[in-house]
Design a binder for these strands. Structure first.
Lengths: 245, 245
DNA sequence: GTAAACAGGATTGTTGACATTTTTGTTGAC
DNA sequence: GTCAACAAAAATGTCAACAATCCTGTTTAC
């Protein structure tokens, strides 16, 4: 039924694993699995951006036709997305993009608080303080401009850069996966929070404090400040909840 | 391709969702999906307990024959387990139970620290202080006995009771899912840490401190103490790493 | 006029056969 | 005796047809 494990040293020459980011060089396998990975990434992107709205039904045949993949692959992708918590599948009724109610959004923010905090701490520990200098400049200059000009699109883009840099620096694959999964579900709400009265200004100040902590290599402070940032975002959401949801 | 979402009020009469815990009454659908859920639970259990050792290959046909389910269902289960991080699937080579190296174990402990800490905080906030009285008694009496008697099996069982109670009280589904996923991967290592010299005694004292904080309704202290507990477990692991792995 | 009953259509679930890839065991040359 | 090449077996990946279920619009009874 199951085979005993091999001598345990074999992992060294590990093959490209499915979930791993495929290297640009390994373009060989035309295998449909590659397409399945792409399909999953595409759907995650479209769901996160709300191009596919919460509550929408995902039809297997339609997706198969659109992406020109067999229905079985669509099925596998939907199973994966269900495990990620992005969709719900009900027997014989198909898959639906999850719709978060207010309670679930707050629950998610509790998780984001501790996970983003850990991410800030690890990022600080794994890098040199000097490597954050470009972020100091970005948030002192352009980002402050964006806030003053109410250019929220650019502000969000800059925030995304900081966030991705921190995740990359944290270098913890499981953490990365969890943060991505959460982010995909709440990206739409995050965008709506940023435009709340005074939120962008306040958020900018908090981000600068986090960056300053990383810039001086203070991992504990970076974690604490990042957590405070998440809590304050949650407070803004609570105050304006009737406008956001 | 995707349908627009319905008027959004329809969620009230939500059907039994696949991943949700099935109620005992709803025994109607003999549907194979029920079996698939059971199969996933069974495999998770067997992998966590290391009845199926890390590095083992999981063969679709063999599992299908053993559990008397079609191969397609085994396939779906394996996809779900891959998403959970319990197995790795390599194209054309099948599924293998993940083998954690030392680095990954430490990474996992960083995650456990913040997630179990959050769990302790939420559990404290969601319950009355008095509801933890039975845990106070359990850890003052029997658990102390188990440590003195080196009855590690009972000690682990008691720890599991506390842990499950806290997760249940936290009442955050996504947190629950993340903690379960981590626990399944590291259960074997947790068991090996507890028997390290002095670990059970030290752990017992830390658990009692966490429980005392919950018993007096101090959520912040509960989180801080639970995090300290995880860090100390990690320190023990670091000190004795050559014996554990 | 309302509501239950009933088809028709559409969608998901299931099954088995087939193609492709990897693995294993054997043979042969050096 | 070791290693390389080759062939057979086994496992995974792929696909299309069939079955079961659910939704929708219409009809019919009261």
């Amino acid at each position: 039924m199951v085979t005993r494990p091999p001598p345990a040293a074999t992992d060294a020459r590990k093959r490209m694993v499915r979930t791993g980011s495929r290297s640009a060089t390994a373009a060989r396998p035309r295998s449909a699995i590659r397409q399945a990975v792409d399909l999953q990434a595409a759907l995650r992107e479209r769901i996160a951006s709300q191009e596919i709205a919460p509550g929408s039904k995902l039809r297997e045949q339609a997706l198969a036709a659109e992406y020109k993949v067999p229905r079985a692959q669509v099925r596998e992708t939907l199973i994966a997305l269900e495990q990620r918590g992005l969709i719900e599948r009900v027997p014989n009724r198909g898959a639906v993009v999850v719709r978060l109610d207010l309670t679930q959004v707050f629950e998610t923010y509790d998780l984001r608080e501790v996970l983003e905090g850990l991410c800030a701490r690890l990022a600080t520990q794994n890098t040199t303080p000097a490597s954050w200098q470009d972020m100091v400049k970005l948030f002192d200059g352009p980002m402050a401009q964006y806030v003053r000009a109410h250019d929220y699109e650019s502000f969000i883009a800059g925030y995304g850069r900081l966030r991705r840099r921190m995740i990359e620096a944290a270098a913890n694959p499981v953490l990365t996966s969890m943060l991505d999964s959460i982010y995909e579900k709440t990206q739409a709400i995050i965008r709506r929070i940023i435009i709340l009265p005074g939120r962008a200004e306040h958020g900018l100040a908090e981000h600068r404090a986090v960056i300053a902590a990383m810039r001086r290599g203070d991992a504990a402070a970076a974690e604490r400040l990042r957590r405070a940032n998440m809590r304050s975002a949650k407070a803004w959401l609570r105050r304006y909840q009737s406008f956001v949801l």
